[in-house]
Amino acid sequence: MNGHRLLLAKPWIWSFAATASVWIITVLFTGGASSVGLSQAALTFAAFSVIVGIGQMFVITLGPGNIDLSVPATMTLSGTLALKLMDVQDSMILVGLILSILLGAIIGLGNYALIKILKIPPIIATLSMSFIVQSTAIWTNRGLRIKPPETLASFTTSSLLGIPHVAIVALILSAFAWLLLEKTIYGRWISAIGQSTFAARMAGIPVDGTRLVTYMLCAVLASVCGYLLASFSGGAALNMGAEYLLMSIAVVVIGGTAVAGGNSNIPGIWGASLFMFLVVSMLNTYGFGAGFRLILTGLLIIAVILVAGGRRSTR
């Protein structure tokens, strides 16, 4: 068991090592002047990736083929609808949050209904679902940009003791996710399903119920992230979730969660999210154009996975 623990502990070290080195390189370039600002920005933007990443991680843990592609559409619809409902009134903040949670639960339910009842592979089921959700968002949005309520906007953009509020929210959610994963029977169940669905079923684990809850959890987290992101950026935009599709998958995998399922880790998601943001800002500070920035981002992702992936062969 101890050796197994060590193996589990290893993967996320890599993402943090990469993050630290990128941070140092960037700060060195600017002569140390940017260290506070850079860290705050990194924490803020990483927080959004972390929230969607955790949801995606739970889904990926379920085993090969499990993935949720409806994350960006869910974020967009949730941000759009919540801002519309709140209508700039501070008294409606909680109602908006409840609406986005409900919305996430419904989308997650729909996703799993397609997967289970129609036996559609998750990747296609969530993709079809995301088309429908995206259409609904286009229909409700109508190009209008509604502002978030004053209090909510200032909450998402300000910080406590130098730590951005959204990062604190993400940290609390991560702590909950960690408890759920490591200390509850549910966490054991999803790992067991990811390692062998057949064995899990034989062992009497409610496989379908667990998978349903997982897809709902992922959609709810994406929904909450959309709610926060729309409030943070002063309004919902139709493409606001777009970059989070690849991001949510990238942070999970760079963070050291096994793509084959059955093995997840939450600290790694933080490392990977910070890494992804810092790489882009490092390349920005060095004044690279958009093309080179993309190429280097891609090569760095592959480099990290090459270094961190070595452990797989030892298993």
Binding site: I254, F292, G298, S313
Partner: peptide
């Protein structure tokens, strides 16, 4: 070859490559 030899997840390697191809495309035709 790399995906097989290093036992890497294809999803991530191709995800990384998608940035590389996108970047090259932007360089060729801004």
């Amino acid at each position: 070859v790399i995906i097989y030899v290093r036992e890497l997840p294809a999803i991530v390697v191709t995800l990384g490559m998608s940035f590389v191809w996108g970047g090259l495309a932007v360089l060729i035709l801004p």
